[in-house]
């Protein structure tokens, strides 16, 4: 434990907890409820001082807190707009410990898949070309709008999703889409017990240090992939490694900690716990692993197999595009 450990400079009294959602789906907020009856234990020792999902906290209230007032802030969601960046900077100042909570805050998550599109294409899809839309006036949200009662300002959409750590210093990263309940409770218990230093350099918590394959029960028969299959078009044989059967399972490049939830339910791991080991780019790690298990000894066969893989970029980087080396499509 460091000198500025959790217990040393913390205000006496109950632990002050903050939760914020940026570019996320809300699943992370719900995942906190997954700790079930432990919630009552948590409320015994901790006060919620900021959690827009469950109560009406104004940004102004948070701005009026003294710096470092929030003991632990669980920040979920990536940074996609100027508002989210603003709040990220605000809660960083107001929190002693800032946790990038969940895949989006840590690696960009699903929203970062839109980094492969330009802001223009996103606006076109959302406001114009979507078949369920009627927008004859071609209305789009504006950042400035003059009304008779004064000028209105709206947050600006950024050209790509950024991670929380791209904007502010992050003390802990907690992977998962969303983090699983047992891991959430383990981390919260450690926080409550003061077992974790308040500041740390983006250490990953709520996960283990191996890969999902390591905790997967499915039998590895050490055979090479003969054909790639898509999960909605074929039924996997139970208890046999999904990757060996030809389903693109990201277990090999994904950090363990979830208990291999998806392979247990006959689904491929989609990689929500982020990159495993020392790799920072989960997608190329998977690409590399996949390349060594294909059953091909000629170039034609290799090209045939590669051609069977549907949407490699979206699959390998499903949750971590903002952490990839390239981070986004190059179009403006």
């Amino acid at each position: 434990m460091t000198t500025n450990g959790a217990t040393s400079d913390r205000q006496p009294g109950k632990l002050r907890l903050g939760v914020y959602w940026a570019s996320s789906c809300g699943g992370c907020d719900i995942s906190l409820l997954e700790i079930g009856e432990h919630l009552l234990e948590l409320i015994e020792v901790a006060d919620i001082v900021f959690w827009p999902c469950v109560a009406d906290f104004k940004y102004r209230t948070v701005a009026d807190y003294p710096d470092g007032y929030i003991d632990v802030c669980l920040f979920n969601g990536g940074i996609r707009s100027s508002e989210q960046e603003q709040i990220a900077r605000l809660v960083r100042r107001k929190s002693r410990t800032l946790v990038a909570y969940g895949a989006c805050a840590m690696d960009g998550g699903i929203p970062a898949l839109a980094n492969l599109e330009s802001t223009r294409e996103i606006f076109d899809a959302v406001y114009h070309s979507n078949p369920s839309l009627q927008n004859p006036g071609h209305v789009e949200p504006q950042t400035h709008w003059a009304t008779p009662h004064g000028d209105l300002e709206l947050p600006r959409l950024y050209p790509q999703v950024l991670r929380l750590a791209d904007i502010v210093e992050v003390d802990y990263q907690m992977p998962g889409c969303p983090p699983v309940g047992t891991q959430v409770w383990k981390v919260l218990q450690a926080v409550v017990a003061g077992e974790v230093p308040a500041r740390n350099a983006a250490v990953r918590v709520g996960c283990d240090n191996r890969s999902v394959c390591d905790e997967c029960h499915r039998e590895k028969r050490k055979v090479r992939i003969k054909e790639f299959k898509r999960p909605h078009l074929a039924i996997p044989e139970p208890n046999w490694c999904l990757l060996e059967q030809g389903f693109v399972c990201l277990g090999a490049s994904t950090r363990s900690g979830c208990g291999a939830l998806c392979p247990k339910a006959e689904l491929t791991c989609r990689g929500c716990y982020g990159s495993a080991g020392l790799a920072t780019d989960q997608g190329t790690a998977m690409l590399s692993a996949l390349g060594s298990v294909m059953d091909a000894v000629t170039e034609d066969r290799a090209n045939e197999l590669v051609g069977q893989i549907a949407d490699p970029t979206g699959t390998f980087y499903r949750f971590s595009l903002a952490s990839s080396a390239l981070k986004a499509h190059r179009k403006p």
Binding site: L290, G291, A296, N303, I309, A328
Partner: peptide
């Protein structure tokens, strides 16, 4: 060349990885 790798099958991995990587790079606009 395929068949000539000093480590026998090292380039078999190159042969599958590189076309796949090429697809991924194009998705990023390269």
């Amino acid at each position: 060349h395929i068949g000539d790798c000093h480590y026998i099958a090292g380039n078999h991995k190159t042969m599958t990885r590189m076309p796949l990587l090429s697809r991924v790079l194009q998705d990023f606009g390269i």
